[in-house]
């Protein structure tokens, strides 16, 4: 259940890259990075609105889709971190070891 955020909650803008769906974050340099810790952190609503307005241009330009503003835990040294489990998983990938396509012994030939 989404909770109401305080007005000055640190936030970042995230989206998915159109061509491959990769999770990306808007950086201070105006590019989209797959690394959350590079994301630009904004606090005031006016700053969020300005950033979103810029990002919508990249939606129109077919660079990204599904813009979202998410709250983060700022860390001046390491960069912002996700607060919710969902966003932590979006940022870092599945929490499980993915199946590895190792070679398997082949079946004996038919003939």
């Amino acid at each position: 259940m989404a909770r109401k955020l305080a007005a000055d909650t640190p936030r970042v803008v995230t989206a998915n890259r159109l061509v491959d769906g990769v999770v990306v974050y808007r950086t201070a340099g105006g590019i989209w990075s797959p690394r959350l810790h590079r994301a630009l952190v904004v606090r005031e609503q006016a700053a969020v609105d300005r950033l979103l307005a810029v990002c919508r241009g990249d939606v129109t330009g077919c660079e990204v889709v599904d813009l979202q503003v998410i709250p983060v835990q700022p860390d001046p040294a390491a960069g912002p971190r996700a607060i919710s489990q969902r966003e932590a998983i979006r940022a870092a990938g599945p929490t499980i070891a993915l199946p590895v396509d190792r070679p398997v012994p082949t079946a004996a030939p038919l003939f």
Partner: peptide, 20 residues
């Protein structure tokens, strides 16, 4: 293992075993 997941090599093997 994640339930329901199969690797490409496992799928290929299953196809071969199905044929055989």
């Amino acid at each position: 293992q994640p339930p329901g997941d199969a690797t490409a090599s496992q799928m290929d093997l299953l196809a071969d075993l199905a044929d055989r």
